[in-house]
Design a protein around this nucleic acid. Sequence first.
DNA 1: ATTTTAGTTTACGTTTACGTAAAAGTCAAC
DNA 2: GTTGACTTTTACGTAAACGTAAACTAAAAT
Lengths: 128, 128
Amino acid sequence: MNYYTISQLAEQFDISTRTIRYYEERGLISPIRTESGQRLYTKKDRAVLKLILRGKRFGFSLEEIHEMISLFDNDRTGRKQLEKTIAYGEQKLKEVTERIEDLMQLKQEMEAILADFRERLQKLEGIE
Amino acid sequence: MNYYTISQLAEQFDISTRTIRYYEERGLISPIRTESGQRLYTKKDRAVLKLILRGKRFGFSLEEIHEMISLFDNDRTGRKQLEKTIAYGEQKLKEVTERIEDLMQLKQEMEAILADFRERLQKLEGIE
DNA sequence: ATTTTAGTTTACGTTTACGTAAAAGTCAAC
DNA sequence: GTTGACTTTTACGTAAACGTAAACTAAAAT
């Protein structure tokens, strides 16, 4: 398998190495270590990092993202665990759906405002 | 016309009065004052506050929201101003559109994961 | 009229999400 | 094999977005 170093990931996502280590501090990502202690990141780690950054763009806190990441943890085999995970996932899915609707409304409003401004500009150019 | 007090707005949006005053400190909202100095908020102020909170849910900083609010400022009458505003608005609209697409992808992924978990639960219940 | 309740300013405190610097070890290149 | 780039931990610093407390004034309620 192929690994990434911390600075490689940092460059790929245009973030600092400190940021990546901070996410590890908070328990969001867990790279393996070489014998000398250097961090090595798998493709899966990279995917998790991508997920974190996407969550951030949506205004989720690292704490919330941490919970969402646990959805991808395949180590939830018990029935109770599964049910809990599904319930949590449905909740988050609902939140995401609401945000999408909210954003689409915002988009429409912005489009209306823009149309209005364009019209005003037209009129100004007619005069001049 | 009808006015809201600061605590009324705070209750309506489930935020603290401190938060509302903070938004004023940052220049995001500008209520009028009574003779004795108490803040009074119009419907328009309320709408602005709503906008701020929505922006926050999407992960925009107060600084960004401040800029977006200026879009609603009707005092941009000059042609250069109009053009600048339109350009900025188009930029923000693009960002919003990208976020929507991003969120929809997240939604699909979450749905796939949930389907997988539901399937596993089914199998568990089949055994038991 | 006098308690509550609500509002004001000022100012220091706190949490989140990192930035930055220091001191030391390690890897890659020449 | 030594220079230079990279990595590690530890630790203090910081900006944003408020929380909280004090000291005071105004409004509402009894």
